[in-house]
Nucleic acid binder design. Structure first.
Lengths: 225, 225
DNA sequence: ACCTAATCGAAAGTATTACTATCATCTCAA
DNA sequence: TTGAGATGATAGTAATACTTTCGATTAGGT
């Protein structure tokens, strides 16, 4: 093929690069499927090994723990998101249109860049990020993991949101906090809408577009007139 | 004493009411301390039993699992918050002042109602809620737990926030979602400020009052002029 | 074709967790 | 004084989250 886009993940997250072997690719792809289906707590390397008809120890040769595998997905997701945002906002100069695109990218409602040969199930990954991502940093070793740069893609993505908000609203003081609010809330409002609907205004419609509308209005209305 | 205020927790959360015995009270009070100090994942009933110089099995007679104990704290916290909000907004009619009080209550910066004989460490509990609360509902059995009404106090508190927002801004369509955004974000922004500061605008000052200012402005600016 | 290193799978082992079950003791209220 | 309820000690279970060892297979370089 004439070109290729590759998501490059922090090397410290794995022991052996899963991209470089069939087994590695299977671990990642089936890992996403399984965590999506059974939830992070039920998921074990033993079960994954059984599904791949291999041995637990083989998986441990790629990832030193379940937590690192989750961090791998988390990194992968935000690097991919970063690319999607860059791609979809290319040649767009209107700040409001950029905000609009941002929200659609975050909700996985953009035109997906199809990468040839790419096996990662983006929808399953998106569901994992919604439900499990906060478990990557709500731990007692956040600081350590942060020093190892495991949250860098997430923080970089946030910085880009802050920039977009700044372009729309240069006098606003809380661009970073509003940015992280939007990212977290696009996931939480979705989760609440599905599971604890009275915490949202979308319990009846269960329409993701309403979440986008809510957050868009939230960002736009922060501008003083 | 002439009066007493008691936080009443859903009976399905415990096997034996911990309020009714010394051991029960110790489980609850030392449980809060330990989870605060070592984090939820490190905390076990065995360690708690060792600290109380009792046996694991005795603790299991009060709470059928660690998760239920966490839910107990979560319920307790939101019922107590509910009382604090009611108490502190009593006789206040100005909507903006109510919003202000709400944010200070949520940040534990209100005048604390001191309940005589009350042992629960509110500051430790508050830290637990910041760091561990989302783990109560980001599970595969949310729906079950929700049916058992375990999230009722949290949802009730949210409904009150929605009312307060509505009183200030009657035309606003997203009162519930904005309410849950504010509650979640007062905790997340605090956590980010301490642990992943680049996700906020408060990394340098580390000042909780700035979080309150950010959220206050966020709520107030949603009103159309 | 041959050697070597890397990779893999199988099996077993370890420490810990999250419980459950049994039983003896202790206390306190009728 | 009797007996119900609460407690404490011990033991046991199934599962998790790994680690270690070892032998077989495979792949790459000369």
């Amino acid at each position: 093929m004439a070109w290729e886009i590759q998501v490059k993940v922090n090397e410290n997250l794995y022991l052996r690069n899963p991209e470089n072997s069939e087994l590695g690719k299977n671990i990642v792809n089936h890992g996403v499927q399984m965590i999506d289906q059974m939830g992070l707590e039920e998921f074990t390397f033993k079960k994954l090994a059984a599904r791949l008809k291999t041995n637990e120890s083989s998986i441990y040769r790629y990832f030193e723990s379940k937590h690192r595998l989750l961090l791998y997905f988390f990194e992968w997701y935000w690097r991919w998101m970063d690319y999607q945002l860059m791609f979809n906002t290319n040649n767009v100069s209107d700040p409001i249109e950029k905000i609009n695109i941002l929200l659609h990218v975050l909700m996985l409602k953009q035109d997906n860049m199809v990468v040839p040969g790419e096996l990662m199930d983006k929808e399953a990954l998106h569901r994992i990020v919604i439900k499990e991502a906060s478990k990557t940093y709500l731990t007692k070793h956040v600081t350590e993991d942060n020093q190892k740069q495991f949250f860098k893609p997430y923080k970089d993505f946030n910085a880009k949101i802050a920039e977009i908000i700044h372009a729309y609203n240069p006098d606003y003081k809380y661009t970073r906090s509003l940015g992280s609010t939007v990212v977290e809330m696009i996931h939480y409002q979705y989760f609440f809408m599905q599971n604890l609907p009275s915490l949202t205004d979308f319990g009846t419609s269960k329409d993701e577009n309403e979440i986008i509308a809510f957050l868009k209005e939230l960002i736009l209305s922060c501008k003083r007139n």
